[in-house]
Design a protein around this nucleic acid. Structure first.
Length: 331
DNA sequence: TAGATGTTCCGCCATT
DNA sequence: CTAATGGCGGAACATC
C-alpha cells in the first residue's frame, strides 16, 4: 500500500476511526471527511470507512454533541489503517479505555498503519507504541507528552511526523495535512490534491506541497524538485520553461516532469500559473500598480494572459478583484 | 477570427 | 529481475 500508483488495490483499504467517550469531535470529523467521502472517479478503489467505539453506539464528543459510532471495536480488527483519536481527558492524564488500548495493540501487532491526530498521540504513547519513535502532538500538550513518556522522541513545531507504521499530527488543521499525506502515499499526489480541492482547502500552502512539512518520508530527489519550486517562486517574474527548471534541478526535462507530478500532483506549467496568480493577489490588493504591471511582475508577459488565467482561478478579473477587496477594506 | 509557431506533457521504449 | 532514467514522437495546448 505504500506506493499504489503502480496498480489498483485488489481489495478496499479499510480505515477504522477509533473514538471513545469524550472524543475530540473535530479529529473524528477530519478523518471521516478525508477517508469517508467517496471519489466517483475511483469507484471502489478507495477507502472503506468505519467509525468504531467501545460497544458501538453514541458517545459524548467534546464540543458538546454526540457521535453515533457505526461499529464496535471489533471493526478495528479489519482495519488496514487505524485512525486513533484522543480526548482532552487523556491529554490531561486520564487513562484511555482498556478496550481501546487492546484494539490499538492488536492493530499494531497485525502490522496495521496507525494514524493519530492531536491528543491521539497520548493513546499511542500509553500503549507503548511510540517508544523510540519520533512523534508529535498539539503544541499545547507537547511538553506534557514528553514529560509523561520520556521514551517518545517528541518533535516540536512540525505539522506531522511519519515514522513508518505510526503517524502522528499536531493539533487542529494539521490532522487534515496528515490525512492528506496518507492519501498521497496510498493514491498519489493528484488524488490527494483532488480530495483537498473537494474540501475547499486553499491552495495557499506557502511554497507548494513538497515544501511544507518535514515529510520524513520524502523520497530521494523530491528535495531537488522542492528546491526548484522554491527557486521558481523567487523568480516568477521571468519566463520559466520546463527545461530551465529541469536544468536547475539537474535532471532531464522528462524526469523532472515525472518527479514534479509525483511531488506536487500537477504539471509544472499548471503549478506555475497557480503560483503566479497567487503572487498577484497581494499586489492587486495592497498596491496601486496597474494591472498590466502586476501581471508583468508575476510573469504574465501580456495583460491578456494575466486576465485569462486570473479569471480562471479566482473567478473574476484582476480589476474586479481589486475593487471588491478595496470595498471590503473600507468596512 | 484564423492560423502559424512554439511549448508542454505523456505514452512508449531502450538503456542504466 | 525491478526501478528509475531520459530520448523521441506527436497530440493537445498556449501564444501572439
Amino acid at each position: 500500500m505504500r506506493h499504489p500508483q503502480r496498480e489498483p488495490a485488489a481489495r478496499r483499504h479499510h480505515v477504522t476511526v477509533l473514538a471513545f467517550d469524550g472524543a475530540a469531535g473535530f479529529e473524528v470529523a477530519v478523518a471521516t471527511e478525508v477517508f469517508g467521502q467517496p471519489i466517483p472517479q475511483l469507484g471502489d478503489d478507495w477507502y472503506a470507512l468505519d467509525v468504531a467505539a467501545p460497544g458501538g453506539g453514541p458517545l459524548r464528543a467534546v464540543p458538546g454533541y454526540a457521535i453515533l459510532a457505526g461499529a464496535g471495536l471489533e471493526a478495528a480488527r479489519r482495519a488496514d489503517t487505524l485512525v486513533v483519536t484522543g480526548s482532552p481527558a487523556v491529554a490531561a492524564g486520564a487513562e484511555p479505555p482498556a478496550a481501546v488500548l487492546d484494539a490499538v495493540h492488536d492493530a499494531a501487532a497485525r502490522g496495521a498503519r496507525l494514524v493519530a491526530m492531536c491528543t491521539g498521540a497520548f493513546v499511542l504513547a500509553r500503549a507503548g507504541l511510540l517508544d523510540g519513535l519520533p512523534a508529535t502532538t498539539h503544541w499545547r500538550f507537547a511538553a506534557e507528552l514528553a514529560a509523561r513518556f520520556p521514551r517518545v522522541d517528541v518533535q516540536q513545531d512540525v505539522l506531522y511526523v511519519d515514522a513508518g507504521p505510526v503517524l502522528t499530527s499536531a493539533g487542529g488543521a494539521a490532522g487534515l495535512d496528515l490525512c492528506l499525506h496518507v492519501v498521497r502515499q496510498d493514491f498519489g499526489a493528484a488524488t490527494a490534491n483532488a480530495v483537498a480541492r473537494g474540501l475547499v482547502l486553499g491552495p495557499h500552502r506557502h511554497g507548494g506541497f513538497a515544501q511544507r512539512a518535514e515529510a520524513p518520508v520524502a523520497r530521494p530527489g523530491d528535495d531537488r524538485v522542492a528546491e526548484t519550486m522554491q527557486w521558481a517562486l523567487a523568480h516568477l517574474d521571468r519566463p520559466l520553461t520546463v527545461s530551465e527548471l529541469a536544468g536547475h534541478a539537474c535532471m532531464s526535462p522528462r524526469t523532472f516532469l515525472r518527479r514534479f507530478r509525483a511531488a506536487a500532483g500537477t504539471s509544472p506549467s499548471e503549478w506555475l500559473l497557480e503560483q503566479r496568480v497567487q503572487a498577484s493577489l497581494p499586489l492587486l490588493e495592497r498596491s496601486d500598480l496597474p494591472v498590466e504591471t502586476v501581471g508583468l511582475r508575476v510573469g504574465f508577459p501580456t495583460p491578456a494572459s494575466f486576465r485569462k488565467h486570473f479569471r480562471r482561478t479566482v473567478g473574476r478579473s484582476p480589476l474586479q478583484h481589486r475593487r471588491s477587496v478595496a470595498r471590503a477594506a473600507t468596512f
